[in-house]
Computed example of a mutant assay.
Amino acid sequence: MVKNTKISVIGAGFVGSTTAYAIMLQKLAEEVVIVDINEKKAMSEAMDIAHGTAFIEDIDVKYGDYSDTKDSDIVIITAGPQPKSGETRLDVLNKGLKINAQIVPQVVKYNPNAIIIVVANPVDILTYQTYKLSGFPKERVIGSGTVVDSGRLKYFVGEKYGINYRKISTYILGEHGDSQVAAWSSTTVSGIKLDDYLKSLGFEINDEIKEKISQKVKEVGFDIVGGKGYTSFGIATAVARIIKAIVTDEHTVLPLSTLYTGEYGIEDVYMAAPCIVGNSGVKNLLEIDLSQEELKNLQKSAEVLKSLNIK
C-alpha cells in the first residue's frame, strides 16, 4: 500500500468502479473515495470493493460526496456518457462537456493541490476543458490519453508475430479516437527497430500490414462495446498504470493527453504525447522521431480536436 495517499474516483460506472478496484488490487492508495450522482451505486461499489480489502491490505474504500474527497492527492474523473455502438467518442461531446462542467468546480473546491486525471470521453476535449475550468497548471491536469490504445497496439503486434509484446516499445499519439496516429517509425522490440527485428526472424512487415493493425486498434474498443456493452478492464488497468507512475515518482514515459505548447508544431490542444510522469504529474512532453507522414497526421489530429475545443 502507498502510505498517506488518497485517491478519489468521480463516477461509479463500469470504468470508475473497475478503476477503484484496480487501485485496491495494486495497493496504490491508503484511502479511496468513490463519488457518483447515484449515491446507492457508489455505496454498493465501494462496499463490494471494500470487502475485498480483507484479502489484500488495510485500505479504506468508501463512498461519499465531493466534500469527502477533500485533500485527495489524485482525483480521477470517469463520469460521462458511454459511447453507443456505431458512435465515435466525439459524438458524445456535448453531453460530456455538460457533465464535466458540473464536476470540475467541485473537484477544485475540495482538492486545490490534486493531480486530476480525466478518463471520461472524449478524453482529450474534456481534459482541455478541465484545464481551462480548473485553473490548475497543465502538469496537474492529465488525460488518460492513449495508454490503453498503445497497449492494444503492442498486444496486436505480438499476437500477429508470436513475439513477447511486453518487449515492444511503441506509442499511439494524438486523439484517443479516429484520428490517432501509430508511431510505427519509433516502434522497437528490445531496443531494435520493429521492421529490422521482424525481418531478422523472416517475418513480413509493410505499410499495408501496419495500417490493418492500426485500424484494428481504433476499432477494437467498439467491438468490445458491441459484445458486452462497455469497456472497463483495459482502461482501468491503464489508469492504474498512470497512477502507479505518479505515486511512486517513477519518471516513466506514458502516452498521456497533455497540453501541446509548440511541440511537433502544435499548440493549445490536449492530446496524447509521450510524457515523463512523476509525483508532480507530467514533467516533460517528449518529441520522438516521427516520419513525415506520421507528423503530418499528428498535426491533422490536432486540428480535428482544436476545431471542437470549447474555449
Rank of each mutant, 00 (worst) to 15 (best):
A101L: 10
V104E: 00
A245D: 11
K212W: 04
K210E: 11
T19Q: 10
Y110K: 08
S8P: 04
S280Y: 08
I246P: 02
I235L: 10
G226C: 08
Q82V: 14
I23E: 02
V147R: 01
D178C: 05
I49P: 00
V123A: 01
G191R: 03
S85R: 09
L285K: 15
A272K: 02
T130I: 01
V277D: 01
K199I: 07
V123Y: 01
T237F: 07
N94P: 04
G151F: 02
I168M: 04
V141E: 01
L308C: 06
I59P: 00
G202Q: 15
F14C: 07
K41G: 06
M271A: 05
N121P: 07
V148A: 06
V33D: 04
K311Q: 10
F233M: 09
I115T: 15
D65E: 13
V253N: 07
D71E: 13
Q102P: 00
V148Y: 03
A22K: 07
K160E: 11
T69K: 01
I192M: 08
P112R: 06
L201S: 13
N111I: 10
N309K: 09
K98S: 09
I213C: 09
I125A: 05
K283Y: 08
G226A: 12
I77V: 13
L194S: 08
P81K: 15
A302Y: 06
Y21R: 15
Y110N: 14
I235Y: 02
D207K: 09
V35S: 02
R140S: 11
E303H: 08
P255W: 01
T18G: 03
I125S: 03
E87Q: 12
I310W: 04
V15N: 03
V119S: 01
V75I: 15
I76H: 01
K167D: 12
V107M: 09
G52R: 14
A182H: 00
E39H: 14
S232A: 12
G229D: 14
A182K: 02
S214F: 04
Y197A: 07
A29F: 08
M1Y: 04
T170C: 07
I172H: 01
A79K: 11
I209R: 13
G145E: 07
S186L: 03
N164E: 13
R152K: 12
E204G: 14
T130S: 15
M24T: 14
G162M: 07
K167N: 14
E45M: 10
S85W: 08
V247L: 08
I37S: 14
V15Q: 04
A302G: 12
K283M: 11
N284Q: 10
I76F: 06
L286N: 14
T248I: 05
G86Y: 07
A101H: 12
A183I: 10
L201Q: 15
K193Q: 15
I205N: 03
T53K: 10
L295Y: 07
N113S: 13
Y260V: 03
A101K: 13
V118G: 02
Y165K: 13
